Amino acid sequence: MLLELADVSKSYPTGEGILHVLRGVSLALDAGESLALTGESGSGKSTLLHLAGGLDRPDQGAIRFGGQDIARLGDRELASFRRVSVGLVFQQFNLIPSLDVGHNLAFQARLGGRHDADWTDRLAERLGLVKLLERYPEQLSGGQQQRVAIGRALAGRPQLILADEPTGNLDEATGDAVLDLMLALLAETGAALLMVTHSTRLAARLGRRLHLTAGRLT
């Protein structure tokens, strides 16, 4: 088992009291497995993803990665975990505007000390980015930017990819093509995928699907 969330809860204080976002959530994800997480807006999907990636800490419960409870790691250890073990793909792309495509692709891998020039070149070729390496994000289409974001996430060969509505800003045809590429590359690397999506159609293409309602999984 690569990732396990065991009885995880998370809440936030608001002006109207405590907002309970996740209520005793448990799930498991094996290496190489893909899991879609669906649910209405505000159901806690992104919060769950952030907890799984070590971007936030739970109020209670355990989040185990390779058997280690990352919720108990110190800030420095948690930052190292994020750099080395996790690749993040967001709906908003989050590319660095001052870096060209080539440097955006390598950015995360360099941070984690895992840059492999040959692998990055292969990613650029597989993602159709070879002729775009010297362009900047503002010179790319939405689909091209998302392919760069996927390449950046995979460049360090992480064990886990967390994707939050990765095709949400793309038209259906472009989104399908981007997901095709991501799934093919994940199969090649053996990384696991946890993807948040509103689309039941896209969710059906992953190995498993769980639905989040009012902070609980069904």
Rank of each mutant, 00 (worst) to 15 (best):
L160V: 02
L129P: 07
V101Y: 06
L88P: 04
L127A: 10
D171N: 08
H211F: 02
G112I: 01
Q159H: 13
M195A: 13
G151R: 04
A192L: 06
Q139G: 11
T167M: 09
E188M: 14
R122S: 15
L202G: 00
L206D: 07
A192E: 01
M182W: 06
L206N: 10
R152H: 08
A177F: 00
D171H: 11
L181D: 13
A117M: 01
R208M: 13
G175Q: 03
A173K: 12
G87C: 11
A191C: 15
L202F: 04
A191L: 14
P97Y: 03
Q91S: 13
G113F: 03
I150C: 12
L206M: 13
T197S: 04
S98A: 13
R157C: 13
G168D: 02
D116S: 12
L162H: 01
H198S: 03
L127D: 00
K131P: 01
E134Q: 15
G151T: 07
F107Y: 14
T197P: 02
L194R: 08
R114E: 07
L183E: 06
A117Y: 00
A155V: 01
L210K: 08
H103I: 00
L210S: 09
N94D: 07
R157L: 14
R126L: 05
G156E: 02
G143D: 03
D164G: 05
R205S: 14
L202A: 14
G102V: 08
Q144P: 11
V89R: 10
S199E: 03
R114P: 08
L88F: 15
S199A: 04
G175S: 08
Q108P: 10
T213P: 00
Q92L: 14
D100P: 13
V86G: 03
G142E: 09
A187Q: 15
T120N: 01
T200M: 08
L194S: 04
Q108K: 09
T197R: 01
V101E: 08
D171G: 13
A173W: 00
L140Q: 11
D118F: 02
K131L: 09
E125L: 11
L162Q: 08
R205N: 12
M195S: 11
S85L: 12
R83E: 03
V178G: 09
Y136W: 05
T174M: 10
R122T: 06
L181T: 01
E125M: 08
R208P: 10
T200N: 06
A106I: 02
D164A: 05
G190L: 14
A155G: 07
N104H: 07
R122W: 10
N94L: 15
A203Q: 05
N94V: 00
A203M: 02
E125I: 05
S199L: 08
D121T: 07
R83C: 00
A204P: 03
L111P: 06
L194P: 00
L202Q: 12
L179F: 07
M182Y: 04
L162K: 06
